[in-house]
C-alpha cells in the first residue's frame, strides 16, 4: 500500500487522532496550566487571557481539555482493548469449536444484547462503587457483546472455508486453527471494527460522564467537562460546547479513518471488475 493511495479524508482523520494522542501523552508538558489549578474568574471568554477561556470554577479550559484527552483516551482505549480481546477470543472459540460451547456463548450474548447498552450500564453503575477500573470493566464487558457478534460472523465465514477443513483433516489443534488459519484472514474487517469500537467507547464514556456516572471530578474528562459547564449555556456561555466539540472531532476523525479502511476491505473482497 502506498501513502499516495490514502484519500485526503483519511489524512484528516489520521492527523486528528495523532493530535489527540500527542495531547494525551504529553499533557503535563503541553498544557499551560495545571489540571485542577484555578487561574482566573469563572467563564472568561474565548481568546482573552486564556485561549479557550475558563470553566465554571475558573480553571483554564485549554489545559483541562488537554488533560481531559489523557483521561478520555486512556479509559476509552483500555475499555476497547479489553472488550476486543474478550470478544475476539470468545467469538473465535465459539466459531471454531461449535457445538454447545457456541450455543451457550451465543445465547448469553443474545441476552446481554437484548438490553440497550446505556440502560444496562445505568443499572449496573447504580450498584457498583464509582471506580475507574470498574467503569472500564463495565464498558468493556458491554461492548464485547458487539465484538463477539461481528467476530463470530467473520470467523464462521472463514471457518467454513476449505482451507480450515484441510487444517482440521491434517490434525491441527484449535489454537493453530484460530491463530494461524482464521485470524490472519479476519484482520482487515476487525481492524476497522476496532476503530469503530474506539469511537464508540469515546462517545459512551463521554455520555456516562455527562450523566455523572463516568469519571468523577475533579479529574478532567471531556464528558464531565460538558456537565460542569452546561449551566453556562442558558447565559449564552458556550464553554460546554468546547469539550463537546472535542469529543465530536475525535469521533469524526476515527470514523473517517474507519470509513477508508472499510472501503479498502470491500475492494479487497473482489469489488468491481
Amino acid at each position: 500500500m502506498r501513502l499516495r493511495s490514502i484519500p485526503p479524508s483519511a489524512w484528516i482523520g489520521i492527523a486528528g487522532i495523532v493530535l489527540a494522542l500527542v495531547c494525551a501523552v504529553f499533557a503535563p508538558w503541553i498544557a499551560p496550566y495545571g489540571e485542577r489549578e484555578i487561574v482566573g474568574d469563572i467563564w472568561q471568554p474565548v481568546g482573552g487571557d486564556f485561549l479557550l477561556g475558563t470553566d465554571n470554577l475558573g480553571r483554564d479550559l485549554l489545559s483541562r481539555l488537554i488533560f481531559g484527552a489523557r483521561t478520555t483516551i486512556f479509559v476509552a482505549m483500555s475499555a476497547t482493548l479489553l472488550s476486543f480481546s474478550l470478544g475476539m477470543i470468545l467469538s473465535f472459540t465459539a466459531a471454531v469449536v461449535r457445538g454447545w460451547t457456541d450455543q451457550a456463548l451465543s445465547r448469553l450474548n443474545d441476552l446481554l444484547m437484548s438490553v440497550p447498552t446505556l440502560i444496562f450500564a445505568l443499572v449496573v453503575l447504580a450498584v457498583l462503587p464509582q471506580e475507574m477500573w470498574i467503569l472500564i470493566l463495565v464498558m468493556a464487558v458491554l461492548d464485547s457483546t458487539r465484538v463477539f457478534r461481528l467476530g463470530r460472523a467473520v470467523a464462521v465465514d472463514i471457518a467454513v472455508m476449505d482451507f480450515v477443513e484441510a487444517a482440521r483433516l491434517r490434525g491441527e489443534g484449535t489454537v493453530w486453527i484460530i491463530f494461524r488459519e482464521i485470524l490472519p484472514n479476519a484482520l482487515s474487517p476487525l481492524l476497522a471494527e476496532f476503530g469503530m469500537r474506539f469511537a464508540f467507547a469515546v462517545l459512551f464514556l463521554s455520555t456516562l460522564s455527562f450523566l455523572g456516572l463516568g469519571i468523577q471530578p475533579p479529574a478532567a474528562d471531556w464528558g464531565g467537562m460538558v456537565k460542569d459547564n452546561k449551566d453556562g449555556i442558558i447565559f449564552g456561555i458556550p464553554a460546554a460546547l468546547i469539550p463537546g466539540g472535542a469529543i465530536a472531532a475525535l469521533a469524526i476523525c476515527v470514523n473517517l479513518v474507519v470509513d477508508w479502511l472499510l472501503n479498502r476491505t470491500s475492494s479487497l473482497k473482489g469489488g468491481r471488475g
Binding site: L203, S206, T207, F210, G223, V226, I233, A240, L241, G244
Partner: peptide
C-alpha cells in the same frame, strides 16, 4: 451522516 453519527447528542442539544 458520518459527522452526525460522531456527534454526542448532548453536544447537538446544547448547540
Amino acid at each position: 451522516s458520518l459527522a452526525a453519527v460522531s456527534l454526542p447528542e448532548f453536544f447537538v442539544g446544547y448547540l
